[in-house]
Design a protein around this nucleic acid. Structure first.
Length: 242
DNA sequence: CCAGACGTTGTT
DNA sequence: GTCTGG
DNA sequence: CCAGACGTTGTT
DNA sequence: GTCTGG
């Protein structure tokens, strides 16, 4: 896949892990689940302000979008950007050179399809540590109000052997950066090959995945609750083997 | 030249 | 089958 | 992505 | 803004 649903640590854990300052105006508790389709504002570190965390709206709006109606359409369609075509697509090719960012998280959700049913999984690093997805950001000006709106998208790549089995329909996964690559990713003057070297699947043996309940796709329930990431046994579901 | 798309999924 | 809402 | 809806009429 | 299709 892709990545349309993820989790975010609380502000104190982010401050320590990413060694950044955070505006006093920004404060939020842990996010146990957020869906990109509601255009949430979430913590991101951009290359033009690498020492601070900002709240950006998930779903990229290219600078040439002319009105709010189209901006909304683009947002829900540009939650992800394919790494394989990111240097060519009009929406991304200029941003990949100059507007890279870290999207702060500590887990994400994907769906496994098995015998006609859908099983949600929660995926983390084996250590449970926070990490950053590789992302692109953009500053869009609403022509009607002149208001600025910063938005971002998460870059995807082909699935590693773990995600091939979990996200078995699409076999894609979000790009997770190694900790040592986070600062280099935000360096402005990277050439194309250097950029591409980051856009690869994270090692499967450093990740863990477990099935969770269908709370995540149940209408009318609160989803930002600890139970949503709790492991759930499905007896009919074969184990994943690496 | 103008008009329209600009994306990821999944599905075929 | 296809669209909308989350 | 998944889940759930998928319509017209008339009336307010 | 920039590219593609007509």
């Amino acid at each position: 896949m892709m990545c349309y649903h993820y989790t975010v640590p609380d502000i104190d854990i982010l401050r320590i892990r990413f060694e950044v300052s955070i505006s006093k105006k920004i404060d939020f508790p842990r996010v146990y689940h957020v869906s990109g389709f509601v255009k949430p504002r979430l913590p991101v570190i951009t290359n033009d302000a690498p020492n601070s965390i900002q709240m950006l709206s998930w779903g990229l709006i290219p600078h040439w979008v002319k009105d709010v109606g189209n901006a909304t359409k683009f947002q829900s369609r540009l939650l992800n950007a394919r790494s394989e075509t990111i240097h060519e697509k009009p929406a991304f090719r200029s941003l990949i050179k100059s507007n890279r960012c870290l999207v702060l998280a500590d887990g994400f959700f994907e769906w496994r399809h098995f015998e006609g049913r859908t099983y949600p999984y929660y995926i983390q690093l084996s250590t449970g540590e926070p990490f950053a997805f590789a992302g692109l950001w953009n500053n869009w000006t609403n022509p009607d109000t002149n208001e600025q709106m910063k938005t971002y998208t998460i870059i995807t790549t082909w699935a590693n052997p773990l995600l091939e089995q979990v996200h078995n329909k699409r076999k894609r996964m979000p790009v997770i950066l190694h900790k040592a690559d986070e600062t280099p990713w935000l360096t402005v003057d990277l050439d194309r090959d250097a950029i591409d070297s980051f856009l690869v699947p994270f090692e499967a043996n450093k990740m863990a995945a477990h099935p969770v309940s269908r709370l995540i796709t149940t209408k009318g329930t609160k989803k930002n609750v600890p139970e949503i990431v709790k492991p759930k046994e499905y007896p009919e579901l074969p184990a994943i083997k690496l």
